[in-house]
């Protein structure tokens, strides 16, 4: 499958992002190896092994409570803040274990941005919301911040709507705008991977469509993993799809193929709406 390579146009190589990793475009960005996860005594994920392609949208589908979000939160190690959790196996980001001793959770989360189910802007101005990550990580001097904020807001397709009121509180925006603000906030860190945990479930159809169009643009420069309950959404926006069921990854593959010719009968039952 060469989709990941095709998706990166040649001129994209001149953008600053690609200068950092010029040779990595063909390798998978995330490599999951026999990963299992427990909340206390309850096992939530079982022996996951798959790879997430670079510069593509990967959708994770499945019924509620099947471990999709738990997996997502394993990648940026948000789960480790919950007492009593443990894991076995490994998750590699750019070939390096996210759990390795040298991997600082703070540095990891700079490389792996996250967008949540509910839009959660900080009670600060639009500008400050976007500048939050770069300021913390000292990615740019303060005088370059306006440029960086504008770039992130443009990438999130929000710039034109907010450019005249960057000092307005982020919470004054509509739900769909808030979610794009949260996407801009994540992008301002210039992550390699963007994790999205049901980013459209709190939005109306029009706002959902904006986000979906945005995903198609963003995959030119980012690797996106999106958890969704909406199978139409998965089939519309994703290049690859993984079906989770009861903590197992039942099937993973090309989206078109998974939705038209699923190999597992549970996948077929789920995508045809027989359960879930």
């Amino acid at each position: 499958m060469t989709a990941a390579v095709e998706l990166v146009p040649q001129e994209a190589a001149s953008t600053p992002r690609l200068v950092h990793h010029p040779t990595r475009t063909a390798t998978p960005v995330i490599d999951v190896r026999s990963y299992a996860f427990w909340y206390g005594g309850t096992q939530a994920l079982f022996d996951l092994t798959f790879t997430i392609p670079r510069r593509a949208v990967t959708a994770l589908i499945g019924p509620s409570g099947c471990g999709k979000s738990t997996f997502l939160r394993s990648v940026n190690r948000l789960n480790e803040l919950i007492p009593g959790t443990r894991h076995t196996g490994d998750i590699l980001l750019e070939g390096v274990s996210v759990f390795s001793r040298g991997m600082d959770a703070v540095a990891l989360r700079r490389e792996v941005g996250m967008v949540f189910q509910q839009p959660n802007p900080f009670p600060k101005s639009i500008f400050d919301n976007v500048a939050y990550g770069p300021r913390l990580n000292a990615l740019a001097p303060e005088r370059d911040m306006p440029e960086r904020v504008e770039r992130a807001l443009r990438q999130a397709a929000l710039w034109d709507e907010v450019k005249d009121r960057l000092e307005a509180p982020g919470t004054s925006l509509s739900g769909g705008q808030q979610q794009r603000l949260c996407i801009a906030r994540a992008l301002a860190n210039e992550p390699e991977v963007l994790l999205m945990d049901e980013p459209c479930s709190a939005l109306d159809p029009a706002a959902t469509q904006r986000i979906e169009e945005l995903l198609v643009e963003l995959k030119q420069s980012y690797s996106i993993v999106i958890v969704t309950h909406n199978m139409q959404q998965a089939s519309r926006v994703s290049d690859f799809t993984g079906f989770f069921y009861l903590g197992h990854l039942i099937e993973f593959g090309d989206t078109k193929q998974l939705f038209t010719r699923p190999t597992d009968e549970r996948t077929e039952a789920y995508i045809t709406g027989r359960f879930g």
Partner: peptide, 27 residues
């Protein structure tokens, strides 16, 4: 303070103590 705000800061790479002080306490 909503938990989602804490997670937003943590997911941006904020260490826990700074999340407590800068995001949670300020909110």
């Amino acid at each position: 303070v909503p938990h989602s705000l804490r997670e937003a800061a943590l997911a941006l790479g904020y260490p826990r103590w700074r999340t407590s002080l800068r995001v949670v306490a300020r909110t």
